[in-house]
Design a protein around this nucleic acid. Structure first.
Lengths: 159, 159
DNA sequence: ACAGCCGCTACTGATTTCGAAGCATATTTC
DNA sequence: GAAATATGCTTCGAAATCAGTAGCGGCTGT
């Protein structure tokens, strides 16, 4: 899980070489170290050591990302939540739910935004009424059902 | 880019074995085919062939995912957009912007939800006023600045 | 029954990965 | 300023993995 303790604004920024390595892996997470090395001007072992450090430090992780629709999760939605009380506590409760893929504390007319991935409308209704709205401190919710996913990218590492 | 043509509700669902393979790769995108094979009861070559097909079909992709904060993108936000006219056209315009990581057409009080990843507040203001609000058909926007990311997962492939 | 297709296994050589050792450049310490 | 320590890189050989392909059942449709 990335950003779990997001208040660690530790390292100022990354080496240009490390950024180049990340860019390579954003294109293909299984690219070989040797090939990456050739692209960024480093030996195979050096790339390997850097990748190890980057993943250990939690800067990057290499994972399979799937299209939920293709896996039988036909209903996705964003839930805007208004909270009375400590928003972090409520966010933690939401985070525990497996159908919730994404939770963020936000400023604006919602205190929390939560992304839901579930099988169908029934599962969504069930989740909302039986679980989310039952959480202590949730005063109101607003649901934005996804009609069509237009863009989703993970390569903001560059620019 | 996943879900670009999301209306292809083609395959009903996936083989249990393929799901198991995906789960393995969601844990570690660089796990070896042999190891995966041992876990799901298949030969190394069979796993390799399946992974190839899954990625070719766009069901899954193996990529490096980064923590934006660690890479100098200190400001993230969700933008709710209200549109007059064809929402798809507006969504396409938004998708073209590099700072926009995520665009979805939604039902509810917003027509489009767009996630922004940018360097700082200045970049966010600039983007909103100079680019997003200038798009033909955007009638109003609401910004939800991210205060803290509590959860982000990519392994909804199981359950 | 047969041909064609599909997915799996088995096997090969080429490539990659892994760990360790060595080396050069900074940084620290006294 | 010199010795000690740390860091990041390269090189290298052994072990593992990857990629391509041939072969082999099991299905499907005719």
């Amino acid at each position: 899980m990335i950003g779990d303790v997001s208040n660690k604004r530790t390292t100022p920024s990354l080496d240009a070489t490390s950024k180049a390595i990340i860019e390579q892996l954003q294109l293909d997470g299984r690219r070989s170290y040797a090939e990456i090395g050739k692209a960024v001007g480093l030996s195979e072992a050096a790339v390997r050591q850097r990748v190890q450090k980057l993943t250990d430090a939690g800067v990057m992780q290499i994972v399979a990302v799937t299209d939920p629709m293709r896996l039988g999760f036909n209903r996705q939605a964003m839930i805007g939540v208004r909270v009375s009380g400590d928003t972090r506590v409520v966010a933690d409760r939401l985070s525990e739910m497996p159908e919730v893929a994404y939770v963020v504390l936000s400023a604006g007319s919602f205190d929390i935004l939560a992304e839901i991935v579930c099988e169908d409308d029934d599962a969504l209704i069930e989740l909302l009424n039986q679980k989310i709205r039952c959480v202590e401190g949730v005063s109101s919710t607003e649901t934005f059902v996804y009609l069509q996913l237009k863009k989703q990218k993970y390569d903001w590492g560059t620019r």
